[in-house]
Amino acid sequence: MAKKRLRNNLRLMRFLKNEMTQAELGERIGVTRQTIAAIEAGKYSPTLETAFRIAEVFEHPLEEIFQWDIEVQSKTN
């Protein structure tokens, strides 16, 4: 089974949104700055609701911000 991982380009999106800070983004979607940092670093996968809120802030479709990538082929049939 392929092991997949959620990737994101939150850093780029923040840059394109006038260098929005992690704290600002966190405040707008109702999470802490540390949670935004963890999402950016790939250490935490946000809930669907938070992911949609992030997409709403950046006015981009969800799939442009988050990608469901195949990382490792751990087991083949």
């Binding site: 966190g26 405040e27 109702g30 999470v31 802490t32 700055r33 540390q34 949670t35 963890a38 935490y44 946000p46 809930t47 938070t50």
Partner: peptide, 8 residues
């Protein structure tokens, strides 16, 4: 400061 969120 911010309260705990979904990750916490």
């Amino acid at each position: 400061g911010p309260k705990s969120d979904e990750r916490d």
